[in-house]
């Protein structure tokens, strides 16, 4: 379970998150919606420990562990994963070497022996099928020369390989055509279990259709201002954010 309490965070001295409260139980998928600049990506980056963001107040407890006290890599080892909105190219570091280093670092953290070469390659083969990623991508540099859609598929592929407990999908649907979105969403759904959970940032109804989230939250100006069922998501799709913004300002 992920419990975020009164989370405040700033970037370059400017406060972006102004008191987030959010609880995501195991086995559930929550969707986070909100207008541009409301703090969705900031929240994602704070959760995964991006050094650019400074937490000034509040706590994040993940399965009983104080997440904010861990390095970015150790958060990953504890099972936190983020599918990046704009995945970075890493020329010269092959996908295979990259994933081998990631898996074995996690295994070392959990005091497990490194995966044998044959087991590792078998794992890659299995997971590639899930998102329809060709074998030749494994010898290329991470995201090097990948199209937008391939990069997003690659994010879900990495998620499948690393088997996180809590995943953040930061606009994974943006830039995908209908078929690619279906493949990515179906891949994600295949990975859902009773012990995993996710926070999905999206602007689109199609993602709601595919994922059928347990809860939908709306973020405005660094705070969660409304939570509800999937119907809240559909209402936003139909009416936009202005009615929520108006309601928030009249409450204030």
């Amino acid at each position: 379970m992920l419990e975020i309490k009164d989370l405040h965070a700033e970037v370059e001295g400017k406060e972006i998150l102004k008191g987030i409260d959010l609880t995501i139980p195991n086995g559930e998928v929550h969707v986070l919606m909100g207008p541009n600049g409301s703090g969705k990506s900031t929240l994602s980056n704070v959760l995964v420990g991006h050094p650019k963001y400074t937490v000034t107040q509040g706590s994040v407890i993940f399965n009983g562990i104080n997440l904010l006290s861990l390095s970015a890599a150790d958060r990953a080892h504890e099972g936190i994963f983020m599918s990046f909105q704009a995945p970075t190219e890493i020329p010269g570091v092959s996908m295979t070497n990259f994933l081998r280093a990631a898996i074995n670092a996690k295994r070392e953290y959990h005091k497990l022996p490194a995966l044998s070469a044959s087991d590792f390659l078998k794992l890659l083969r299995e997971k590639r099928k899930l998102v329809g990623l060709d074998a030749h991508f494994m010898n290329r540099g991470v995201n090097e020369g990948f199209s937008g859609g391939e990069r997003k598929r690659n994010e879900i592929f990495q998620m499948a390989v690393l088997e996180p407990l809590f995943s953040i999908l930061d606009e994974t649907d943006s830039g995908l055509d209908v078929d690619a979105l279906r493949i990515v969403a179906e891949g994600f759904n295949t990975l859902r279990t009773e012990s995993t959970s996710a926070l999905v940032i999206t602007h689109y109804q199609r993602m709601l259709d595919y994922l059928r989230p347990d809860r939908v939250h709306v973020l405005v100006d660094g705070r969660v201002v409304q939570s509800g069922t999937i119907d809240l998501g559909y209402e936003i799709e139909a009416r936009g954010f202005d009615w929520i913004k108006s309601a928030v300002s009249s409450d204030n």
Binding site: A76, F81, P87, T88, I90, L162
Partner: peptide, 15 residues
């Protein structure tokens, strides 16, 4: 590349 360094750390590769 700071972005690449963070991407790798997010996947669990120590700095």
């Amino acid at each position: 590349d700071e972005a690449a360094l963070f991407y790798m750390q997010q996947r669990g590769i120590p700095l």
